[in-house]
Design a protein around this nucleic acid. Structure first.
Lengths: 166, 166
DNA sequence: CTAGATGCAAAAACTTTGCTCTCTG
DNA sequence: CAGAGAGCAAAGTTTTTGCATCTAG
């Protein structure tokens, strides 16, 4: 029940990244840019926004335009390979859907996002939906919390642009 | 455990609206515009976006600018009187926080939003947060479902601008 | 009377699009 | 080779802001 991040191999060049693999399986035409973006997303252990993906892609290989990144993440979202999130920073964040269903706990003091999964909750969600007469097809759970040990409150910034989060 | 909407009195003129009351309690300067917006929000039984609030306010009294609506909902959000939502339509939606904690079930076929509350879930949320070493200060739960009785599927529109939802 | 509110229009921030050229399958 | 994809810049949307002008307390 934790952030299942495991040591990922350097992913030098040709080993199709996790997400590239998914693209291939769905029959997407694999261009250099898509491969690049797929790789960035596969290696991301956080929830990058489009800007992040764009910057990281440029860092690896200076051959993408921001428009392509937008088009690609949108495509991947439609194909169910990515999930779009909104943690309140004004920009959409993306989350590879193949990490398994998980939820987020946002540290309201630092903005850090922690992933977690919970079987009991999954079950309860199904039940709640059924109770309302629906079959559950998706869910979104976000908890906002504060570290148990009080660490001295600080001035809460503005809402927009809270700086880099995880 | 349902959408607790009760017959609200016409709210003719001077009876401070539910939300105006909250504003007063927090010592906000009550201008005509704020009173108007507060009233619109108090009477809303759905999850209006800024445009909606603006239009409804204009309909009641032609004396607000969209900028003021933006500034006001932001203020009310900061004061904890409103909660911002994102149901995926590209615009922020607002939800009076005094209806009590509740969650949403979005009908993926119609886009309709159903509110519900669940004690068991509240409890579980607290536990999950504590398990991760946090004290729960907020939460957001959205279920996406499909009516139990299959009613004939229809083409799903684009992602942006899915039209009016509830 | 004065700090805070409002209007208006301009600007920002984020995302999508039209069109031409390129490249995958 | 044809049709899908990429780049670039222009256009859209939604939200924020600067500034001069009001107004609640």
């Amino acid at each position: 029940m934790e952030t299942r991040i495991q040591a990922r191999p350097p992913a030098q060049d040709r080993a199709p990244s996790r997400i590239e693999q998914l693209c291939i399986e769905r029959g997407l035409k694999m261009t250099g840019q898509r491969r690049l973006i797929a790789r960035v997303l596969s290696e991301a252990e956080d929830h990058p926004d489009v800007e992040d993906v764009y910057r990281r892609a440029l860092a690896l290989d200076n051959k993408v335009s921001i428009a392509t990144v937008y088009r690609t993440v949108r495509l991947l979202e439609e194909k169910g390979i990515l999930e779009r999130r909104d943690f309140g920073g004004g920009r959409a964040r993306y989350d590879p859907a193949d990490r398994g269903h998980h939820h987020h706990l946002i540290d309201v003091d630092t903005g850090k996002v922690i992933e977690f999964a919970d079987e009991e909750f999954e079950e309860l969600a199904r039940i709640m939906a059924r109770r309302l007469g629906f079959v559950l097809v998706g869910q979104r759970l976000e908890l906002f919390g504060r570290r148990a040990e009080p660490v001295e409150a600080e001035a809460p910034g503005k809402r927009r642009k809270p700086g880099r989060e995880s």
